[in-house]
Amino acid sequence: MVAERRLADPSAETVSFVGAGVQARSHLAAFSKLFPLKRIRVFGRSKANTDKLCGHARDMGLEAEAAANARDTLRDTDLVLTSITLDYSIEPFLDARWLKQSAFAAITDACIPWSQDGVSAFKTVIVDDRTQEFESDKPMLPYQQVTCDLT
């Protein structure tokens, strides 16, 4: 939330979730305290979890919809959270070029769902620990694209 507070648009109204599990639910609670959210969009592999997250958002007074596909999930969103299963065999299915320029992406899944061809569209990239990212056997994106870390 440190990065969201400093970098995301403080008037963010729409948040999109790729992955609808525990991470998504906890981030929804946190985002709703920081931003004047009005709606969420969800793209998840489990219909049950997607419906549950949408229902939870509606209980909070937000509009909620299940997205038909990955691209629709990212359209016109202010914030996006990706939190898919950490499985490196998953083929990337998201492209950062689909995001509007002012969107903020919180990526908790090691960039697994993001196409490496599109990650250059991220203008500012902040990781937890820059040294750890540099020394990683599976870096999330090209090291030179990392702007700084949370320290």
Results as ranks from 00 to 15, higher is better:
S136L: 00
R45G: 13
S32K: 12
M60A: 08
N69Y: 02
L86H: 15
M140A: 05
K100Q: 08
C111D: 02
W114I: 14
D109F: 04
M60R: 12
E133S: 05
A64F: 01
C54V: 04
A20Y: 01
L53S: 12
A110K: 11
T14P: 05
V127M: 00
V22R: 04
M140V: 08
W98M: 02
A30T: 13
L79V: 15
D76S: 10
A105M: 11
R45V: 15
S32Y: 07
K123N: 02
S46W: 01
Q144T: 06
R71L: 03
D149N: 12
A121T: 00
L79N: 12
V18R: 06
S102E: 10
S89T: 15
D129C: 15
D9I: 14
A29D: 11
T50Q: 04
D95K: 04
V125M: 05
L7D: 12
R25M: 05
Q23I: 08
Q145Y: 07
A30N: 08
E91W: 08
D109K: 08
F93L: 07
D129G: 14
F104M: 12
E133W: 02
D137R: 04
P10E: 09
S32I: 11
T131Y: 05
A103F: 06
D129T: 14
K52Y: 04
R39V: 05
A24R: 05
P92T: 09
V15S: 03
L99C: 06
A30V: 09
R39Y: 01
V42C: 06
I84G: 10
C148S: 10
P36G: 14
P139S: 00
A57S: 03
G44A: 07
S83N: 14
D129V: 15
A110V: 08
L34Y: 07
A106C: 13
A70W: 01
D59G: 13
A8D: 08
T77L: 02
V119G: 03
E133K: 03
G61P: 05
D87W: 11
T108K: 12
L62C: 04
Q116D: 10
K52V: 04
V2K: 12
T85W: 11
A70M: 05
D149I: 09
T85S: 11
P10L: 05
D117W: 02
L79I: 15
K38S: 09
N49Q: 07
D95Q: 03
D51P: 04
V80R: 07
H56I: 14
V18K: 12
A24G: 09
V15A: 10
P10A: 09
F43I: 13
S102R: 10
D149V: 09
D129Y: 14
Q101A: 01
D129F: 14
